[in-house]
Amino acid sequence: MDFLPEQQDLISIGISILAGSLVGLEREYKNKSAGFRTIVLICLGATAFTIASRFGAGSDDRIAANIITGIGFIGAGVIFKDKFSVMGLTTAAVIWVVAGIGMAAGLGYYGLALSLSFITVAVLSLFSKVEISMEKLFLTRTLFVVFQDVDVGNLEKLKEVMDRHHLKYVRKTVSKRARQLSVVFELNGDRKSLQQFNNEMMTLMYVEEFYYNS
């Protein structure tokens, strides 16, 4: 029985912790559900299973496949859906990538593991700025509106408000509940126009309530 880890395994563990820390710090800075400790542990766990797979004859592929399956369950746990939007997809993708980084470290591809961690941080940091820039030009949002009554004229009034703010819209659903009319729209426009429209929505007396995922 060998109670002492091999030098290569210790290096793999060290690289795994370092690589996971680089990505984890970015996630912690942005206050995500999977923060510093979680990301490091995911990376370290993938490394540990990959190292263990080397000691089982013909088990490498099976263990690697099980790592991917297990990470899928963890990723699914950070995804949640509200009325109209799905959140946590980026965090789930990060968990998936970090597991891959941990596996690379466990296999001894240290340069690849560190390179992927730097690339992941760059994508998370720099590409978010690209998304913000694009949102200034074009956004798609879903609007849920409950009118005070079933007067169809109020629906036409709301469409006039959308036209005034130069928004493109598609009516997705219409429903009646008790004495109220509910409508769901898909809106398209730039960020400034959507914000101005959202502000005006708050002043419309014929609108009982609305949900606007800004």
Rank of each mutant, 00 (worst) to 15 (best):
F3E: 03
E6N: 07
Q8A: 14
L10R: 06
I11D: 05
S12W: 03
I15T: 04
R27W: 03
K30Y: 03
S33C: 02
V40W: 05
F49L: 14
S53F: 06
F55R: 09
A64G: 10
A64Q: 12
I67S: 09
I67C: 08
T69P: 01
I71Y: 08
G75Q: 07
G77V: 04
G77E: 00
D82C: 06
F84D: 11
S85C: 08
T91N: 03
A93V: 11
A104E: 07
G106K: 10
Y109M: 15
Y109I: 07
Y109C: 06
Y109D: 02
G111K: 00
L114T: 14
S117W: 04
F118H: 08
F118L: 15
A122D: 10
S125F: 10
E131N: 07
K136P: 01
L139M: 14
V145A: 12
V146P: 00
V146H: 05
D151Y: 04
D151M: 11
K159Y: 01
V161L: 03
M162S: 12
R164K: 15
H165A: 10
V170T: 13
R179H: 12
G189C: 10
D190T: 09
M202K: 12
M205K: 15
Y206G: 09
V207R: 06
E208Q: 13
F210A: 07
F210G: 10
S214P: 00
